[in-house]
Design a protein around this nucleic acid. Sequence first.
DNA 1: TAAGTCACG
DNA 2: ACGTACGTGACTTAT
Length: 588
Amino acid sequence: MKALSAADLIAVDTETTSLSIHDAALVGFSFAVKEGEGWYVPVSHRSMDLLSAAPKQIAKAMIFSALQPILEDASKPKCLQNAKYDLQILRNENIHLAGICYDTMLMAYVLEAGQAVSMDKLAEKYLHHKCIAYEEVAGKGAKQITFDLIDVEQAAVYAAEDAEVTLRLCLAFKHALGDQIKRHDEIELPLSLVLADMEWAGAYVDSTQLATLSQRFGERIEALEMKIIEAAGEDFNIRSPKQLGVLLFETLGLEGGKKTKSGQWATGQDVLEKLAEEHEIPNLILETRGLSKLKSTYTDALQKLVNIKTKRVHTSYNQGVTTTGRLSSTNPNLQNIPIRSEEGREIRKAFVAEDGNVLIAADYSQIELRLMAHFSGDAILKQAFADGLDIHAATAAAVNGIDLREVTGEQRRQAKAVNFGILYGMSAFGLAKQLGVSRSDAKMFIEAYFARYPTVQTFMDETLEKAREQGYVETLLGHRVYVHDINSSNGMMKAYAERTAINAPLQGSAADIIKVAMIALQERLKAEVPQARLIMQVHDELIVECADADREHVSTLMAETMQSAVELDVPLIADIAFGTSWFEAHEL
DNA sequence: TAAGTCACG
DNA sequence: ACGTACGTGACTTAT
Protein backbone atom coordinates (compact mmCIF):
# COMPACT_ATOMS: atom_id res chain seq x y z
CA MET A 1 0.00 0.00 0.00
CA LYS A 2 2.86 2.32 0.78
CA ALA A 3 4.43 1.74 -2.62
CA LEU A 4 1.16 2.16 -4.49
CA SER A 5 0.38 5.40 -2.68
CA ALA A 6 3.76 6.85 -3.46
CA ALA A 7 3.91 5.76 -7.13
CA ASP A 8 3.52 8.28 -9.91
CA LEU A 9 2.31 5.57 -12.28
CA ILE A 10 0.72 2.24 -11.37
CA ALA A 11 0.42 -0.64 -13.80
CA VAL A 12 -2.75 -2.55 -12.98
CA ASP A 13 -3.97 -5.91 -14.16
CA THR A 14 -6.71 -8.27 -13.04
CA GLU A 15 -7.00 -12.05 -13.26
CA THR A 16 -10.44 -13.54 -13.75
CA THR A 17 -12.28 -16.74 -14.60
CA SER A 18 -13.66 -15.72 -17.99
CA LEU A 19 -13.15 -13.39 -20.93
CA SER A 20 -16.86 -12.78 -21.01
CA ILE A 21 -17.39 -9.81 -18.72
CA HIS A 22 -20.72 -10.69 -17.17
CA ASP A 23 -19.62 -14.26 -16.44
CA ALA A 24 -16.18 -13.39 -15.12
CA ALA A 25 -15.30 -13.46 -11.45
CA LEU A 26 -12.36 -11.53 -10.10
CA VAL A 27 -9.54 -13.83 -8.97
CA GLY A 28 -6.73 -11.44 -8.18
CA PHE A 29 -5.01 -8.10 -8.77
CA SER A 30 -1.50 -7.42 -9.93
CA PHE A 31 0.46 -4.21 -9.73
CA ALA A 32 3.81 -2.78 -10.75
CA VAL A 33 5.27 0.61 -9.98
CA LYS A 34 8.85 0.11 -11.06
CA GLU A 35 10.70 -1.96 -13.58
CA GLY A 36 11.73 -5.41 -12.48
CA GLU A 37 9.15 -5.71 -9.71
CA GLY A 38 5.56 -6.82 -9.60
CA TRP A 39 3.02 -7.91 -6.99
CA TYR A 40 0.13 -10.27 -7.05
CA VAL A 41 -2.81 -10.01 -4.67
CA PRO A 42 -4.85 -13.24 -4.71
CA VAL A 43 -8.50 -12.63 -3.93
CA SER A 44 -10.56 -15.69 -4.62
CA HIS A 45 -8.37 -18.65 -5.44
CA ARG A 46 -9.89 -22.06 -4.82
CA SER A 47 -8.39 -25.46 -4.31
CA MET A 48 -8.40 -28.06 -7.09
CA ASP A 49 -9.40 -30.62 -4.52
CA LEU A 50 -12.97 -29.91 -3.49
CA LEU A 51 -12.42 -31.37 -0.06
CA SER A 52 -9.46 -29.30 0.95
CA ALA A 53 -9.70 -25.69 2.00
CA ALA A 54 -9.03 -22.73 -0.26
CA PRO A 55 -5.45 -21.42 -0.21
CA LYS A 56 -4.66 -18.84 2.40
CA GLN A 57 -5.68 -15.38 1.22
CA ILE A 58 -6.34 -12.03 2.84
CA ALA A 59 -10.08 -11.50 3.32
CA LYS A 60 -11.65 -9.94 0.24
CA ALA A 61 -13.27 -7.15 2.26
CA MET A 62 -9.92 -6.20 3.70
CA ILE A 63 -8.24 -6.17 0.31
CA PHE A 64 -11.02 -4.05 -1.14
CA SER A 65 -11.05 -1.52 1.66
CA ALA A 66 -7.34 -1.01 1.13
CA LEU A 67 -7.27 -0.98 -2.68
CA GLN A 68 -10.57 0.65 -3.59
CA PRO A 69 -9.53 4.19 -2.55
CA ILE A 70 -6.45 3.99 -4.73
CA LEU A 71 -8.18 2.36 -7.70
CA GLU A 72 -10.92 4.98 -7.59
CA ASP A 73 -8.57 7.91 -7.11
CA ALA A 74 -8.48 9.85 -10.38
CA SER A 75 -5.32 11.64 -9.29
CA LYS A 76 -3.41 8.35 -9.16
CA PRO A 77 -2.34 7.68 -12.77
CA LYS A 78 -2.67 4.10 -14.00
CA CYS A 79 -1.71 2.15 -17.06
CA LEU A 80 -3.27 -1.09 -18.25
CA GLN A 81 -3.23 -3.39 -21.23
CA ASN A 82 -6.77 -3.27 -22.67
CA ALA A 83 -8.23 -1.23 -19.83
CA LYS A 84 -11.76 -1.67 -21.20
CA TYR A 85 -11.74 -5.24 -19.92
CA ASP A 86 -10.40 -4.66 -16.41
CA LEU A 87 -12.63 -1.63 -16.05
CA GLN A 88 -15.70 -3.81 -16.49
CA ILE A 89 -14.37 -6.58 -14.27
CA LEU A 90 -13.90 -4.06 -11.50
CA ARG A 91 -17.29 -2.51 -12.19
CA ASN A 92 -18.71 -5.97 -11.52
CA GLU A 93 -17.15 -5.69 -8.08
CA ASN A 94 -18.49 -2.18 -7.59
CA ILE A 95 -15.05 -0.70 -7.95
CA HIS A 96 -15.06 2.28 -10.29
CA LEU A 97 -11.58 2.43 -11.70
CA ALA A 98 -10.42 6.02 -12.22
CA GLY A 99 -7.22 7.67 -13.31
CA ILE A 100 -6.73 5.48 -16.37
CA CYS A 101 -4.03 7.40 -18.23
CA TYR A 102 -2.47 4.86 -20.53
CA ASP A 103 -3.59 1.76 -22.34
CA THR A 104 -0.61 -0.05 -23.84
CA MET A 105 -2.79 -1.85 -26.36
CA LEU A 106 -4.10 1.44 -27.69
CA MET A 107 -0.66 3.02 -27.62
CA ALA A 108 0.64 0.17 -29.76
CA TYR A 109 -2.30 0.63 -32.10
CA VAL A 110 -1.68 4.34 -32.49
CA LEU A 111 1.99 3.67 -33.10
CA GLU A 112 1.28 1.17 -35.85
CA ALA A 113 -2.23 0.03 -36.67
CA GLY A 114 -2.31 -3.53 -37.88
CA GLN A 115 0.53 -4.84 -35.75
CA ALA A 116 -0.37 -7.54 -33.23
CA VAL A 117 -1.33 -5.79 -30.00
CA SER A 118 -1.50 -8.70 -27.55
CA MET A 119 0.75 -8.16 -24.56
CA ASP A 120 3.02 -11.12 -25.21
CA LYS A 121 3.57 -10.06 -28.83
CA LEU A 122 4.33 -6.49 -27.79
CA ALA A 123 6.70 -7.68 -25.07
CA GLU A 124 8.65 -9.75 -27.59
CA LYS A 125 8.79 -6.99 -30.15
CA TYR A 126 9.53 -3.98 -27.97
CA LEU A 127 11.11 -5.44 -24.83
CA HIS A 128 12.69 -8.61 -26.23
CA HIS A 129 11.01 -10.38 -23.39
CA LYS A 130 9.18 -13.67 -23.65
CA CYS A 131 6.16 -13.72 -21.36
CA ILE A 132 4.93 -16.78 -19.54
CA ALA A 133 2.17 -18.14 -21.77
CA TYR A 134 -1.29 -18.40 -20.26
CA GLU A 135 -1.35 -22.05 -21.38
CA GLU A 136 1.74 -22.75 -19.32
CA VAL A 137 -0.10 -22.02 -16.10
CA ALA A 138 -3.68 -22.87 -17.05
CA GLY A 139 -3.18 -25.69 -19.52
CA LYS A 140 -4.94 -25.74 -22.86
CA GLY A 141 -7.88 -27.23 -24.67
CA ALA A 142 -10.40 -29.27 -22.73
CA LYS A 143 -7.99 -29.64 -19.84
CA GLN A 144 -7.60 -25.91 -19.28
CA ILE A 145 -8.50 -24.78 -15.78
CA THR A 146 -9.83 -21.39 -14.72
CA PHE A 147 -7.45 -18.95 -13.11
CA ASP A 148 -8.91 -19.34 -9.64
CA LEU A 149 -7.80 -22.99 -9.62
CA ILE A 150 -4.19 -22.18 -10.43
CA ASP A 151 -1.75 -22.57 -7.60
CA VAL A 152 -1.23 -19.14 -5.98
CA GLU A 153 2.56 -19.29 -6.19
CA GLN A 154 2.42 -19.98 -9.92
CA ALA A 155 -0.37 -17.48 -10.53
CA ALA A 156 1.66 -14.80 -8.77
CA VAL A 157 4.63 -15.13 -11.11
CA TYR A 158 2.41 -15.05 -14.19
CA ALA A 159 0.19 -12.18 -13.04
CA ALA A 160 2.94 -10.02 -11.60
CA GLU A 161 4.81 -10.32 -14.86
CA ASP A 162 1.77 -8.97 -16.72
CA ALA A 163 1.71 -5.83 -14.62
CA GLU A 164 5.46 -5.34 -14.82
CA VAL A 165 5.52 -5.80 -18.59
CA THR A 166 2.61 -3.39 -18.96
CA LEU A 167 4.56 -0.78 -17.04
CA ARG A 168 7.67 -1.19 -19.18
CA LEU A 169 5.65 -1.18 -22.41
CA CYS A 170 3.95 1.99 -21.29
CA LEU A 171 7.25 3.76 -20.75
CA ALA A 172 8.61 2.51 -24.08
CA PHE A 173 5.53 3.61 -26.01
CA LYS A 174 5.39 7.02 -24.35
CA HIS A 175 8.84 7.63 -25.70
CA ALA A 176 8.15 6.15 -29.14
CA LEU A 177 4.86 7.93 -29.71
CA GLY A 178 6.06 11.51 -29.41
CA ASP A 179 3.31 13.84 -30.70
CA GLN A 180 1.20 10.86 -31.65
CA ILE A 181 0.33 10.36 -28.00
CA LYS A 182 -2.43 12.91 -28.68
CA ARG A 183 -4.47 10.36 -30.59
CA HIS A 184 -4.22 7.98 -27.66
CA ASP A 185 -5.06 10.67 -25.11
CA GLU A 186 -7.84 12.44 -26.96
CA ILE A 187 -9.43 9.74 -29.10
CA GLU A 188 -8.62 6.09 -28.48
CA LEU A 189 -8.46 6.07 -24.68
CA PRO A 190 -11.61 8.18 -24.14
CA LEU A 191 -13.35 6.05 -26.76
CA SER A 192 -12.39 2.86 -24.94
CA LEU A 193 -14.31 4.10 -21.91
CA VAL A 194 -17.37 4.70 -24.08
CA LEU A 195 -17.02 1.24 -25.59
CA ALA A 196 -16.81 -0.25 -22.10
CA ASP A 197 -20.20 1.29 -21.30
CA MET A 198 -21.66 0.01 -24.57
CA GLU A 199 -20.42 -3.53 -24.00
CA TRP A 200 -21.64 -3.41 -20.44
CA ALA A 201 -25.12 -2.29 -21.47
CA GLY A 202 -25.48 -4.82 -24.27
CA ALA A 203 -28.31 -5.08 -26.77
CA TYR A 204 -31.62 -6.55 -25.72
CA VAL A 205 -32.53 -9.54 -27.86
CA ASP A 206 -35.85 -11.33 -28.16
CA SER A 207 -34.80 -14.99 -28.06
CA THR A 208 -38.29 -16.24 -28.85
CA GLN A 209 -38.21 -14.38 -32.14
CA LEU A 210 -34.83 -15.89 -32.98
CA ALA A 211 -36.04 -19.38 -32.11
CA THR A 212 -39.02 -18.97 -34.42
CA LEU A 213 -36.76 -17.85 -37.25
CA SER A 214 -34.33 -20.73 -36.60
CA GLN A 215 -37.15 -23.22 -36.83
CA ARG A 216 -38.52 -21.66 -40.01
CA PHE A 217 -35.10 -21.58 -41.68
CA GLY A 218 -34.41 -25.15 -40.52
CA GLU A 219 -37.52 -26.54 -42.14
CA ARG A 220 -36.80 -24.85 -45.42
CA ILE A 221 -33.19 -26.06 -45.40
CA GLU A 222 -34.29 -29.65 -44.87
CA ALA A 223 -36.76 -29.50 -47.74
CA LEU A 224 -34.16 -27.96 -50.03
CA GLU A 225 -31.54 -30.55 -49.08
CA MET A 226 -33.88 -33.39 -50.02
CA LYS A 227 -34.62 -31.74 -53.32
CA ILE A 228 -30.91 -31.28 -54.06
CA ILE A 229 -29.99 -34.88 -53.27
CA GLU A 230 -32.82 -36.01 -55.50
CA ALA A 231 -31.71 -33.77 -58.36
CA ALA A 232 -28.10 -34.92 -57.92
CA GLY A 233 -29.09 -38.55 -58.08
CA GLU A 234 -26.67 -39.41 -55.29
CA ASP A 235 -26.09 -38.60 -51.63
CA PHE A 236 -23.40 -36.06 -50.78
CA ASN A 237 -22.65 -33.36 -48.21
CA ILE A 238 -24.26 -30.22 -49.56
CA ARG A 239 -22.18 -28.05 -47.20
CA SER A 240 -18.88 -29.33 -48.52
CA PRO A 241 -17.59 -27.09 -51.33
CA LYS A 242 -15.17 -29.86 -52.23
CA GLN A 243 -17.84 -32.51 -52.69
CA LEU A 244 -20.13 -30.04 -54.43
CA GLY A 245 -17.40 -29.13 -56.93
CA VAL A 246 -16.81 -32.77 -57.79
CA LEU A 247 -20.51 -33.35 -58.25
CA LEU A 248 -21.12 -30.31 -60.46
CA PHE A 249 -18.03 -30.41 -62.64
CA GLU A 250 -17.11 -34.09 -62.66
CA THR A 251 -20.16 -36.25 -62.00
CA LEU A 252 -22.63 -33.96 -63.75
CA GLY A 253 -20.03 -32.57 -66.14
CA LEU A 254 -21.26 -28.97 -66.10
CA GLU A 255 -19.29 -26.42 -68.13
CA GLY A 256 -17.59 -23.27 -66.93
CA GLY A 257 -15.77 -24.55 -63.86
CA LYS A 258 -12.95 -22.53 -62.29
CA LYS A 259 -10.37 -23.75 -59.82
CA THR A 260 -9.36 -22.00 -56.61
CA LYS A 261 -5.74 -21.31 -55.59
CA SER A 262 -5.53 -24.71 -53.98
CA GLY A 263 -6.72 -26.49 -57.11
CA GLN A 264 -10.17 -27.25 -55.77
CA TRP A 265 -13.26 -26.48 -57.84
CA ALA A 266 -14.59 -23.01 -56.98
CA THR A 267 -18.25 -23.05 -55.99
CA GLY A 268 -18.71 -19.48 -54.81
CA GLN A 269 -21.79 -17.38 -55.40
CA ASP A 270 -20.58 -15.90 -58.70
CA VAL A 271 -19.78 -19.35 -60.11
CA LEU A 272 -23.09 -20.85 -59.06
CA GLU A 273 -25.06 -17.92 -60.44
CA LYS A 274 -23.53 -18.45 -63.89
CA LEU A 275 -24.17 -22.18 -63.65
CA ALA A 276 -27.84 -21.69 -62.87
CA GLU A 277 -28.73 -21.72 -66.56
CA GLU A 278 -27.25 -25.17 -67.02
CA HIS A 279 -28.80 -27.01 -64.10
CA GLU A 280 -31.32 -26.58 -61.29
CA ILE A 281 -28.89 -27.55 -58.53
CA PRO A 282 -26.81 -24.33 -58.36
CA ASN A 283 -29.81 -22.17 -57.47
CA LEU A 284 -30.97 -24.66 -54.87
CA ILE A 285 -27.49 -24.66 -53.35
CA LEU A 286 -27.43 -20.87 -53.27
CA GLU A 287 -30.77 -20.79 -51.51
CA THR A 288 -29.66 -23.42 -48.99
CA ARG A 289 -26.40 -21.63 -48.34
CA GLY A 290 -28.23 -18.37 -47.73
CA LEU A 291 -30.57 -19.94 -45.22
CA SER A 292 -27.83 -21.96 -43.50
CA LYS A 293 -25.80 -18.81 -43.10
CA LEU A 294 -28.70 -17.00 -41.47
CA LYS A 295 -29.46 -19.92 -39.18
CA SER A 296 -25.99 -20.91 -38.02
CA THR A 297 -24.36 -17.50 -37.86
CA TYR A 298 -27.31 -15.48 -36.62
CA THR A 299 -30.49 -17.03 -35.37
CA ASP A 300 -28.86 -20.05 -33.65
CA ALA A 301 -25.65 -18.36 -32.56
CA LEU A 302 -27.23 -15.20 -31.17
CA GLN A 303 -29.52 -17.20 -28.89
CA LYS A 304 -26.50 -18.88 -27.36
CA LEU A 305 -24.84 -15.53 -26.73
CA VAL A 306 -27.73 -13.96 -24.85
CA ASN A 307 -26.48 -13.54 -21.31
CA ILE A 308 -28.70 -15.30 -18.81
CA LYS A 309 -28.40 -12.58 -16.20
CA THR A 310 -28.93 -9.56 -18.43
CA LYS A 311 -30.94 -11.18 -21.23
CA ARG A 312 -28.84 -9.12 -23.58
CA VAL A 313 -25.97 -9.79 -25.96
CA HIS A 314 -22.73 -8.14 -24.91
CA THR A 315 -20.47 -7.84 -27.91
CA SER A 316 -16.85 -7.05 -27.54
CA TYR A 317 -15.54 -4.15 -29.61
CA ASN A 318 -11.99 -4.60 -30.73
CA GLN A 319 -10.16 -1.33 -30.97
CA GLY A 320 -6.83 -2.67 -32.12
CA VAL A 321 -7.23 -4.83 -35.18
CA THR A 322 -8.13 -2.83 -38.26
CA THR A 323 -5.53 -0.97 -40.25
CA THR A 324 -7.87 1.88 -41.16
CA GLY A 325 -8.95 2.80 -37.64
CA ARG A 326 -12.35 1.19 -37.72
CA LEU A 327 -13.62 -0.88 -34.81
CA SER A 328 -14.51 -4.51 -35.16
CA SER A 329 -17.03 -6.52 -33.17
CA THR A 330 -16.91 -10.12 -31.94
CA ASN A 331 -18.92 -12.57 -29.83
CA PRO A 332 -21.24 -11.75 -31.47
CA ASN A 333 -20.25 -9.62 -34.42
CA LEU A 334 -22.99 -7.00 -34.29
CA GLN A 335 -21.55 -5.16 -37.26
CA ASN A 336 -22.67 -7.69 -39.84
CA ILE A 337 -26.27 -8.38 -38.89
CA PRO A 338 -28.11 -8.95 -42.21
CA ILE A 339 -30.03 -6.15 -43.90
CA ARG A 340 -29.64 -6.58 -47.67
CA SER A 341 -31.91 -9.57 -48.16
CA GLU A 342 -35.51 -9.49 -47.04
CA GLU A 343 -35.39 -12.70 -45.02
CA GLY A 344 -32.06 -11.77 -43.46
CA ARG A 345 -33.39 -8.38 -42.45
CA GLU A 346 -36.02 -10.18 -40.33
CA ILE A 347 -33.24 -10.91 -37.84
CA ARG A 348 -33.18 -7.22 -36.94
CA LYS A 349 -36.69 -7.61 -35.56
CA ALA A 350 -35.15 -9.59 -32.70
CA PHE A 351 -33.03 -6.60 -31.63
CA VAL A 352 -35.55 -4.70 -29.57
CA ALA A 353 -35.78 -1.98 -26.97
CA GLU A 354 -36.84 -3.01 -23.49
CA ASP A 355 -40.40 -2.19 -22.39
CA GLY A 356 -41.10 1.51 -22.38
CA ASN A 357 -37.98 2.18 -24.40
CA VAL A 358 -37.18 2.88 -28.02
CA LEU A 359 -34.17 2.35 -30.27
CA ILE A 360 -32.83 5.33 -32.14
CA ALA A 361 -30.49 4.73 -35.05
CA ALA A 362 -28.47 7.53 -36.59
CA ASP A 363 -26.28 6.98 -39.60
CA TYR A 364 -23.94 9.26 -41.48
CA SER A 365 -25.15 9.91 -44.99
CA GLN A 366 -22.49 9.21 -47.66
CA ILE A 367 -19.70 10.06 -45.26
CA GLU A 368 -16.87 8.68 -47.37
CA LEU A 369 -17.97 10.50 -50.52
CA ARG A 370 -18.31 13.67 -48.50
CA LEU A 371 -14.74 13.15 -47.34
CA MET A 372 -13.67 12.71 -50.95
CA ALA A 373 -15.34 16.05 -51.74
CA HIS A 374 -13.59 17.60 -48.75
CA PHE A 375 -10.12 16.23 -49.45
CA SER A 376 -10.19 16.82 -53.20
CA GLY A 377 -11.84 20.21 -52.86
CA ASP A 378 -13.79 19.42 -56.01
CA ALA A 379 -16.22 22.25 -56.72
CA ILE A 380 -18.94 20.20 -58.44
CA LEU A 381 -18.89 17.51 -55.76
CA LYS A 382 -18.92 20.08 -52.96
CA GLN A 383 -21.79 21.96 -54.58
CA ALA A 384 -23.80 18.76 -54.97
CA PHE A 385 -23.50 18.08 -51.25
CA ALA A 386 -24.14 21.71 -50.36
CA ASP A 387 -27.36 21.53 -52.38
CA GLY A 388 -28.36 18.31 -50.65
CA LEU A 389 -28.57 16.43 -53.93
CA ASP A 390 -28.84 12.68 -54.43
CA ILE A 391 -25.12 12.21 -54.97
CA HIS A 392 -25.35 9.19 -57.27
CA ALA A 393 -27.90 10.90 -59.49
CA ALA A 394 -25.77 14.05 -59.49
CA THR A 395 -22.74 12.02 -60.55
CA ALA A 396 -24.78 10.43 -63.32
CA ALA A 397 -25.90 13.83 -64.53
CA ALA A 398 -22.38 15.23 -64.48
CA VAL A 399 -20.72 12.26 -66.17
CA ASN A 400 -23.37 12.00 -68.89
CA GLY A 401 -23.59 15.76 -69.35
CA ILE A 402 -27.34 15.83 -68.78
CA ASP A 403 -29.81 17.49 -66.47
CA LEU A 404 -30.44 15.92 -63.08
CA ARG A 405 -34.08 15.30 -64.01
CA GLU A 406 -33.11 13.34 -67.11
CA VAL A 407 -31.08 10.74 -65.20
CA THR A 408 -32.46 7.24 -65.71
CA GLY A 409 -32.47 4.49 -63.10
CA GLU A 410 -29.80 2.64 -65.03
CA GLN A 411 -27.55 5.70 -65.22
CA ARG A 412 -27.90 6.24 -61.50
CA ARG A 413 -27.05 2.61 -60.79
CA GLN A 414 -23.91 2.86 -62.88
CA ALA A 415 -22.88 6.15 -61.31
CA LYS A 416 -23.37 4.62 -57.86
CA ALA A 417 -21.01 1.78 -58.76
CA VAL A 418 -18.46 4.29 -60.04
CA ASN A 419 -18.76 6.30 -56.83
CA PHE A 420 -18.08 3.20 -54.76
CA GLY A 421 -15.27 2.28 -57.11
CA ILE A 422 -13.67 5.66 -56.46
CA LEU A 423 -13.61 4.96 -52.74
CA TYR A 424 -11.94 1.60 -53.30
CA GLY A 425 -9.27 2.78 -55.71
CA MET A 426 -11.07 1.04 -58.53
CA SER A 427 -9.75 -0.74 -61.57
CA ALA A 428 -11.59 -1.15 -64.87
CA PHE A 429 -11.73 -4.87 -64.17
CA GLY A 430 -13.38 -4.47 -60.78
CA LEU A 431 -15.94 -2.00 -62.05
CA ALA A 432 -16.72 -4.19 -65.08
CA LYS A 433 -17.33 -7.15 -62.81
CA GLN A 434 -19.52 -5.14 -60.49
CA LEU A 435 -21.60 -3.66 -63.31
CA GLY A 436 -21.64 -6.68 -65.56
CA VAL A 437 -20.30 -4.68 -68.49
CA SER A 438 -17.21 -5.11 -70.65
CA ARG A 439 -13.87 -3.95 -69.42
CA SER A 440 -13.65 -1.34 -72.17
CA ASP A 441 -17.05 0.08 -71.21
CA ALA A 442 -15.94 0.23 -67.60
CA LYS A 443 -12.81 2.03 -68.70
CA MET A 444 -14.97 4.58 -70.52
CA PHE A 445 -17.07 5.19 -67.42
CA ILE A 446 -13.95 5.81 -65.39
CA GLU A 447 -12.49 8.16 -67.97
CA ALA A 448 -15.76 10.06 -68.18
CA TYR A 449 -15.77 10.37 -64.40
CA PHE A 450 -12.28 11.79 -64.17
CA ALA A 451 -12.95 14.15 -67.06
CA ARG A 452 -15.74 15.71 -64.98
CA TYR A 453 -13.93 15.46 -61.66
CA PRO A 454 -10.28 16.21 -62.45
CA THR A 455 -9.53 17.32 -58.91
CA VAL A 456 -10.49 13.87 -57.64
CA GLN A 457 -7.81 12.47 -59.94
CA THR A 458 -5.36 15.05 -58.62
CA PHE A 459 -6.18 14.15 -55.02
CA MET A 460 -5.61 10.48 -55.74
CA ASP A 461 -2.30 11.17 -57.48
CA GLU A 462 -1.13 13.29 -54.57
CA THR A 463 -2.18 10.65 -52.08
CA LEU A 464 -0.13 8.03 -53.91
CA GLU A 465 2.82 10.38 -54.12
CA LYS A 466 2.70 10.96 -50.37
CA ALA A 467 2.36 7.24 -49.75
CA ARG A 468 5.46 6.52 -51.83
CA GLU A 469 7.47 9.18 -50.00
CA GLN A 470 6.41 8.51 -46.39
CA GLY A 471 5.41 4.87 -46.57
CA TYR A 472 2.09 5.72 -44.97
CA VAL A 473 -1.06 7.73 -45.58
CA GLU A 474 -2.96 9.70 -42.98
CA THR A 475 -6.57 10.27 -42.00
CA LEU A 476 -8.27 13.55 -41.15
CA LEU A 477 -7.22 13.30 -37.51
CA GLY A 478 -3.76 11.87 -38.09
CA HIS A 479 -4.27 8.11 -37.91
CA ARG A 480 -1.46 6.56 -39.95
CA VAL A 481 -1.95 3.64 -42.29
CA TYR A 482 1.29 2.10 -43.46
CA VAL A 483 1.40 0.91 -47.06
CA HIS A 484 4.63 -1.05 -47.03
CA ASP A 485 4.30 -2.50 -50.53
CA ILE A 486 3.69 0.83 -52.24
CA ASN A 487 7.11 0.67 -53.95
CA SER A 488 7.08 -3.09 -54.44
CA SER A 489 8.51 -4.58 -57.61
CA ASN A 490 5.67 -7.08 -57.57
CA GLY A 491 3.00 -5.39 -59.67
CA MET A 492 0.12 -7.09 -57.91
CA MET A 493 1.30 -6.15 -54.46
CA LYS A 494 2.00 -2.62 -55.57
CA ALA A 495 -1.45 -2.25 -57.09
CA TYR A 496 -3.01 -3.56 -53.92
CA ALA A 497 -1.00 -1.13 -51.81
CA GLU A 498 -2.12 1.70 -54.08
CA ARG A 499 -5.79 0.84 -53.67
CA THR A 500 -5.25 0.69 -49.91
CA ALA A 501 -3.57 4.08 -50.01
CA ILE A 502 -6.60 5.59 -51.75
CA ASN A 503 -9.21 3.89 -49.59
CA ALA A 504 -7.60 4.16 -46.16
CA PRO A 505 -7.76 7.95 -45.72
CA LEU A 506 -11.46 7.90 -46.61
CA GLN A 507 -12.51 4.86 -44.58
CA GLY A 508 -10.16 5.89 -41.78
CA SER A 509 -11.32 9.50 -41.60
CA ALA A 510 -14.91 8.30 -41.39
CA ALA A 511 -13.79 6.14 -38.47
CA ASP A 512 -12.09 9.15 -36.85
CA ILE A 513 -15.25 11.20 -37.15
CA ILE A 514 -17.59 8.66 -35.62
CA LYS A 515 -15.12 8.10 -32.77
CA VAL A 516 -15.16 11.81 -31.95
CA ALA A 517 -18.95 11.80 -32.22
CA MET A 518 -19.24 8.85 -29.84
CA ILE A 519 -17.12 10.54 -27.19
CA ALA A 520 -19.13 13.75 -27.48
CA LEU A 521 -22.47 11.95 -27.55
CA GLN A 522 -21.69 9.88 -24.49
CA GLU A 523 -20.72 12.98 -22.56
CA ARG A 524 -23.91 14.80 -23.46
CA LEU A 525 -26.10 11.76 -22.79
CA LYS A 526 -24.54 11.39 -19.37
CA ALA A 527 -25.28 15.01 -18.56
CA GLU A 528 -28.69 15.37 -20.17
CA VAL A 529 -30.33 11.93 -20.43
CA PRO A 530 -28.43 9.66 -18.06
CA GLN A 531 -30.73 6.66 -18.52
CA ALA A 532 -30.18 6.63 -22.28
CA ARG A 533 -27.57 4.14 -23.41
CA LEU A 534 -25.40 4.02 -26.48
CA ILE A 535 -25.47 0.33 -27.36
CA MET A 536 -24.10 -0.25 -30.87
CA GLN A 537 -21.76 1.16 -33.49
CA VAL A 538 -21.76 -0.12 -37.06
CA HIS A 539 -19.02 1.95 -38.74
CA ASP A 540 -21.24 4.86 -39.82
CA GLU A 541 -24.22 4.22 -37.57
CA LEU A 542 -24.90 4.65 -33.84
CA ILE A 543 -27.77 3.09 -31.94
CA VAL A 544 -29.08 4.40 -28.65
CA GLU A 545 -31.72 2.86 -26.42
CA CYS A 546 -33.73 5.36 -24.37
CA ALA A 547 -37.09 5.88 -22.71
CA ASP A 548 -39.99 6.67 -25.07
CA ALA A 549 -40.33 10.06 -23.43
CA ASP A 550 -36.73 10.99 -24.25
CA ARG A 551 -36.98 10.10 -27.93
CA GLU A 552 -37.05 13.63 -29.32
CA HIS A 553 -34.36 14.89 -27.03
CA VAL A 554 -31.99 12.01 -27.78
CA SER A 555 -32.63 12.22 -31.52
CA THR A 556 -31.65 15.88 -31.49
CA LEU A 557 -28.59 15.13 -29.40
CA MET A 558 -27.44 12.42 -31.76
CA ALA A 559 -27.91 14.57 -34.85
CA GLU A 560 -26.11 17.49 -33.26
CA THR A 561 -23.11 15.60 -31.94
CA MET A 562 -22.65 13.51 -35.05
CA GLN A 563 -22.98 16.41 -37.47
CA SER A 564 -20.65 18.68 -35.54
CA ALA A 565 -18.00 16.10 -34.69
CA VAL A 566 -15.62 17.79 -37.13
CA GLU A 567 -15.92 20.68 -39.55
CA LEU A 568 -15.59 19.79 -43.22
CA ASP A 569 -15.95 21.80 -46.42
CA VAL A 570 -19.24 19.98 -46.99
CA PRO A 571 -22.17 19.45 -44.65
CA LEU A 572 -21.99 16.33 -42.47
CA ILE A 573 -25.46 14.80 -42.28
CA ALA A 574 -26.80 12.10 -39.96
CA ASP A 575 -30.15 10.50 -40.78
CA ILE A 576 -32.22 9.56 -37.76
CA ALA A 577 -34.82 6.83 -37.44
CA PHE A 578 -36.44 5.14 -34.45
CA GLY A 579 -38.57 2.15 -33.58
CA THR A 580 -39.22 -0.62 -31.11
CA SER A 581 -36.80 -2.83 -33.01
CA TRP A 582 -33.65 -2.31 -35.03
CA PHE A 583 -35.69 -3.43 -38.03
CA GLU A 584 -38.06 -0.52 -37.55
CA ALA A 585 -35.34 1.94 -36.71
CA HIS A 586 -34.17 1.96 -40.27
CA GLU A 587 -35.42 4.19 -43.02
CA LEU A 588 -36.65 2.02 -45.83
C1' DT B 1 -5.37 -24.48 -38.51
C1' DA B 2 -6.29 -23.35 -43.35
C1' DA B 3 -9.45 -22.68 -46.97
C1' DG B 4 -13.86 -21.58 -48.75
C1' DT B 5 -17.88 -19.09 -48.29
C1' DC B 6 -20.73 -15.19 -47.07
C1' DA B 7 -22.75 -11.61 -43.66
C1' DC B 8 -21.96 -6.27 -42.93
C1' DG B 9 -20.10 -1.00 -43.87
C1' DA C 1 -0.53 -15.04 -68.23
C1' DC C 2 -1.98 -13.77 -63.75
C1' DG C 3 -5.21 -11.74 -60.80
C1' DT C 4 -7.49 -7.63 -59.78
C1' DA C 5 -12.30 -2.65 -55.80
C1' DC C 6 -11.49 -1.30 -49.54
C1' DG C 7 -12.17 -3.03 -44.49
C1' DT C 8 -13.84 -6.81 -41.19
C1' DG C 9 -15.71 -11.84 -38.37
C1' DA C 10 -18.14 -16.42 -38.14
C1' DC C 11 -19.22 -20.85 -39.62
C1' DT C 12 -18.26 -25.28 -42.01
C1' DT C 13 -15.34 -28.65 -43.90
C1' DA C 14 -11.06 -30.83 -44.32
C1' DT C 15 -6.53 -31.82 -42.74
